[in-house]
Nucleic acid binder design. Sequence first.
DNA 1: TATATTAAATGTAAACCGTACATTTATATA
DNA 2: TATATAAATGTACGGTTTACATTTAATATA
Lengths: 231, 231
Amino acid sequence: MQRKDYYAGNDKMYVATDCIVFGYSTDCLQLLIFPRKVEPHKGEWSLIGSFVKEDEHVRDAAERVLKEITGLDKVFFEQLKTYGDVDRDPGARCISVAQYALIRLGETDRKLVEGHGAYWYKLEDLPSLVLDHDELVRDALNELRRKARYQPIGFELLPEKFTLPQLINLYEVIYQKKLDPRNFRKKILSLKVLTKLDEKDKSTSKKGAYLYKFNREKYHQLLESGYHFEL
Amino acid sequence: MQRKDYYAGNDKMYVATDCIVFGYSTDCLQLLIFPRKVEPHKGEWSLIGSFVKEDEHVRDAAERVLKEITGLDKVFFEQLKTYGDVDRDPGARCISVAQYALIRLGETDRKLVEGHGAYWYKLEDLPSLVLDHDELVRDALNELRRKARYQPIGFELLPEKFTLPQLINLYEVIYQKKLDPRNFRKKILSLKVLTKLDEKDKSTSKKGAYLYKFNREKYHQLLESGYHFEL
DNA sequence: TATATTAAATGTAAACCGTACATTTATATA
DNA sequence: TATATAAATGTACGGTTTACATTTAATATA
């Protein structure tokens, strides 16, 4: 960068980004962690993260490191918040912009992930993590649940074509509780943001379940018309 | 700071915090802005902000600068999000952690504020601001409205004792629309988080309006019992 | 002391939405 | 043709939101 630095004299510091990467499988949410590669606390379990480079957008830094480890592009990403404690990182003054991601777990990713020394852990048997990362995970989980109530982010975690039973299961995993399939259907269909297809997925039953697509256009129309979306 | 820097070799950058300071008066929301003191864009309208120091919590930096300009301590503060574009600030690579604040406007503050060259502007006749600050304001306003729906942040903007007409007015100002006083009363009273006092405020009518206090304890009980608070 | 004025306080009926709950349907396989 | 399995569907009740008009308390004034 060759622009003039007008701000010389003020303090600079490290800016990191940490990614809370949730993986969805049909029975539970999982979290991607790996053994920290640098001192201090080298070898302890950590979220995936990276320092932000001077010529790099904070978001791009997160995408870069996630791509590196999972091979995934175009992942659903959302900023959580920035952790700014002076002593949060004993390695140096370093603030962290936390961002959470949602990924559908498939066999393909798993190998690449393990090749990088990372692992998927079920949320319920997560080990304790380095620095303030336990707090980041707690906050991200709350935010994920909050967000899932008001925005259809669940769709990011399903294939383009999905069945209603799959969708219900997803919300059950996120909320960690059983939902009534009749009421769930009624609610979600009343929003008119799903398009029913003429195909069935017969992989889980003899009868087969109709496939649906999420209609982003209708969803945005709904939002813009001031509708207060809630699941 | 004398701890060892384990991270030498990675990039450092400036970290700023910008404050979107909302002021509430009975007829409208206002925003605190001031002419930027440093190049580039010196003299143009800007949010109040500061560089975060190496030994300072990001939140403390915001409190410091706000105290300096308004004289106010213990202001309601909430982190909005972090703006991380590489080129957002032509002065240097600088990310900004935006935080918004809510202040009740009183004559006392106004003088101190003006002594620092800052001004309260009504939202509707806000001039355009420097860098990405227009975007920050837009985002903060959305977040404020969203938050006001789900959390009683409005109470931060009223004196400890307030009347229901005052509370209604506050929400009308935040949402920019008229609310039905009968339904509003019914709703807010049904939550049982207000304590009715035996005093009246007679400054706006002959009859006088009963004063109420916000009961934080009951509010937290409500939240912890899993209640989904909504106004 | 009676009357007028002003803002605060109150109630009710209809529409709507969330919830609880049990049966029928479509298809593959035995 | 019967059986087994998961998908799909409907209804009645209770609570909440909404729309809407009158009464009340207190001061000021005639």
